[in-house]
Simulated scan of single mutants.
Amino acid sequence: MMSRTRRLVGALALLGGFAAFAPATAQTTVLKYSNWLPAGQAMRVEVIEPWIAEVEKATQGRVKIDTLPKVVGTLPAQFDVARDGQADLVVFIPGYTPNRFDILEVLQMPFISDNPEVLAPIADRFYRKHLASYGEFKGVHPLSVYVVSPGQLFNAKRPLRSIADFKGLKFRSPQPSATQALTLLGAVPVNKPVSETYELLSSGVLDGTLMPPESIPAFKLNDQVNYATIVPGAIYNTVLVLGINEDKWKSLRAEDRDAIMRISGEAFAARIGQAYAKGDRAAFDGLRKAGKTVEVLPEPALAEMKKVLQPVEKDWIEKARKKGVADPQKLLAQVRAEVAAANGGK
């Protein structure tokens, strides 16, 4: 009996030894995503939701993303939400907090580009090569830096065919360079996030909005605007960032960080640009079918606008210099050169 007991104890000890060398089951990390994008919106449906599924697949299930039932905090506060760990993953808009991400505004200057398929991937590449070293996103790791469609002009009052037509119109502005541009054009800028646009237009607080065309139907604004004015080259672009809490990012396995970055960065930005370009075409078609006026700003007015808006660029150069950029003009020239190269030298 004693012999059998000893053999059993020995066998159990041996099994325990094998177990000590068996690989541990990889633990799943669940990232909390604070979403503010409405159902059906292009960025959400065509890029972010597929990317969420890709993250789980690319990490073999070790990293999953849980979209929270409602946005954490306010839309302008999303950077802080991620930095402070209230959520792990956010999309934030640097322009919603003026005087905080001044150097990044180089990508938002007037007449940089009106094509998101070109500028969106350039934005991520340019940020990593030229802007990341300034540390404006401390505490949040940028998974992708990109632009959506450039803001175009939509209003309920009148067609915009000359600079004089802007006078007195109250326009929503999403970021500092757009606010300055509207002021220079004689309009009245109202700084509000996109989520408040419908209420402000429907109540008459606003006459119009600067907004990516795709966002007009996405935020149910078709009935609130009668006139769309397309500015060739665009008055401004808006940078957005898909960001993750820095400490949470560092806690992931190196191989999972590598896998996530392979499907983020410039690749993610390129998909955003494609989705918005398609959404813009559909948005303008929808407005035309609804009997709205869609016009390109006439060439004489465009030429005058370029002169009127020159202070936007000059003032950014001064801001950037104060934030430690040795040669802001060179930085701006580099952006324009990359866009020209992507456009075949045009």
Rank of each mutant, 00 (worst) to 15 (best):
S3Q: 11
V9W: 14
A13R: 01
A13T: 10
L14F: 11
F21K: 03
F21Y: 12
A24T: 13
T25P: 02
T28A: 14
T29Q: 15
T29K: 15
S34W: 02
W36Q: 01
A39L: 10
M43S: 14
V47C: 10
P50I: 09
W51P: 00
I52Y: 13
A53R: 15
A53T: 15
V55I: 15
V55W: 14
E56T: 15
K57H: 11
A58M: 12
A58I: 06
T59S: 05
T59C: 05
G61Q: 05
G61C: 03
R62D: 06
V63E: 09
I65S: 11
I65K: 12
K70P: 00
V71E: 11
V71D: 07
V71N: 12
A77G: 13
Q78P: 03
Q78Y: 02
F79Y: 15
D80G: 08
Q86T: 00
L89T: 02
V91T: 14
P94G: 09
G95E: 01
P98R: 06
R100C: 00
F101C: 08
I103W: 04
L104M: 13
E105V: 05
E105R: 11
Q108Y: 02
I112L: 15
S113E: 10
V118A: 00
P121T: 09
I122S: 08
R125F: 03
Y127W: 10
Y127C: 02
Y127N: 06
R128H: 13
G135F: 07
G139E: 14
Y146T: 05
Y146W: 11
P150V: 12
G151Q: 07
G151L: 08
A156M: 05
A164P: 00
Q175A: 11
P176A: 12
P176W: 02
T183K: 13
L185K: 06
L185W: 08
V188I: 14
V190G: 02
V194Q: 11
T197L: 12
T197M: 10
Y198Q: 06
E199K: 15
L201W: 04
S202K: 13
L206F: 11
G208K: 03
G208V: 04
T209W: 04
L210S: 01
M211D: 09
P213Q: 02
P213Y: 09
E214F: 12
P217M: 07
A228Q: 11
I235T: 04
I235S: 05
L240P: 00
L242W: 15
G243H: 10
N245Q: 08
E246C: 05
W249L: 04
S251H: 09
L252P: 05
A254T: 09
E255F: 02
D258M: 10
I260S: 10
I260K: 11
R262I: 06
S264N: 06
G265S: 09
A270V: 03
A270F: 04
G273M: 06
G273P: 05
A275F: 03
A277W: 05
G279D: 13
D280T: 06
A283I: 01
D285C: 02
L287F: 10
L297G: 01
L302R: 02
L302P: 04
A303W: 00
Q310S: 13
V312L: 07
E313F: 10
K314T: 12
K319W: 11
A320P: 03
V325N: 00
D327I: 03
L331V: 14
L332C: 00
A337S: 15
A341S: 08
N343M: 11
